[in-house]
Design a protein around this nucleic acid. Structure first.
Lengths: 195, 195
DNA sequence: ATTTTTATTGAATTAGCATTCCAGAATCAC
DNA sequence: GTGATTCTGGAATGCTAATTCAATAAAAAT
């Protein structure tokens, strides 16, 4: 019942992800979102209630479609080894040949840096995204240790956190400097540290 | 000649650093700066011309007084070994017992994440701060390799970049989650990767 | 076909933002 | 002291932000 929407909410969120990623949350105006999506402010508010809520929807959706989880899911389905999976993750960060339509950086990383612990509720949400990623890395390390790809001197948890830290650092550094290849050597060193 | 200032510009910048670090650039209003410094908007503008310029002054001063360069300078004066110096750097990030009056995070890191490559001039400035830090890490690794603290299989440059990436990552992760000790294991792994 | 429900849209609304003005006060040079 | 200069601070300034409204349009339900 009622009138039909002139837009697909999902598409709007996808566009919003792009805007928030390139400008950050605070610097993104509703006008920016209107321009990017072609959706009238009234409709935007009717659908998403506020800029903040739309941002949260963007975070949710990004969690669902992020290259990080996407790549890990795919690798799992394809039975790729832990070692090769982590290699692919680093390649995704460091390789200048980006897949078309992919993102330049990571929305969660940017949001964490910009909003920090200032908004407690949002901080918790972002932390749980981080925890989810970290947990997958730890699990991957555990599998790699189990099949002998990696050494077992260090705990999978510490190694996973190590990997997560350096991936976040690289993602951050690349926000300024597009020179991805510059970090290829660092990625190799991180991989070697697992053995 | 003329009237005397009721404030010390340096003190104002120090306060501004704190405000910009906790709120970020965009979310910091001039009113926030006025409240934090006790300096009237007119005087602030008379001294610093604009919010952006004050922010740049804060970046400059932060570069000059940052714990990173401070610790490295001190270690150099005291003749601390490369290995111990890097250990101290990690401890500064990861140790929950913070020195009083110290900063919780890093202004350059936060600025880089928030502003990204959006403002080209500012991006260049931030990149050069990053380059300066990275160069000092590389130099430190070189010294460590020279005296046998570290292995020489990898280039000092790649190892320095590796260190810089993980330090940035840790700094970022700790903006959300105050649990510094959580990353202690990761720091150890990074140290071990140098050998 | 009328009612009910939901969406669209151009035009408000309200608030806060960065920034400026100007009259007055303090300091220095003479 | 007088004047030039510099700083202060309360009150604008003009702008843009996020958000809402009232009127209208479209679809489904009765």
């Amino acid at each position: 019942m009622g009138r039909k929407k002139h837009f697909a909410p999902e598409r709007v969120i996808d566009k919003a992800i792009g805007v928030f990623m390139s400008r950050g949350y605070e610097a993104t105006s509703v006008k920016d979102l209107v321009d990017a999506t072609g959706v009238h402010p009234g409709s935007l508010y009717n659908e998403f209630t506020s800029k903040k809520r739309l941002f949260e929807a963007a975070l949710d959706r990004y969690d669902a479609i992020s290259p990080f989880h996407g790549l890990l899911d795919q690798a799992e389905r394809d039975g790729v080894s832990a070692r090769d999976t982590i290699d692919m993750l680093f390649a995704g960060i460091v390789n200048p040949d980006r897949p078309p339509g992919g993102y330049e950086s990571c929305l969660i990383t940017s949001a964490a840096a910009e909003l920090g612990r200032g908004n407690a509720a949002l901080a918790r949400r972002l932390q749980s995204s981080f925890d989810g990623m970290e947990a997958r890395l730890c699990e991957l390390v555990r599998k790699g240790q189990a099949n002998g790809d990696f050494g077992s001197t260090r705990s999978a948890q510490d190694l996973g956190r190590f990997l997560f830290s350096i991936m976040q650092g690289m993602t951050l550094l690349l926000k300024l400097n597009g020179d991805r290849a510059r970090l290829a050597g660092a990625a190799e060193i991180a991989m070697a540290a697992l053995e």
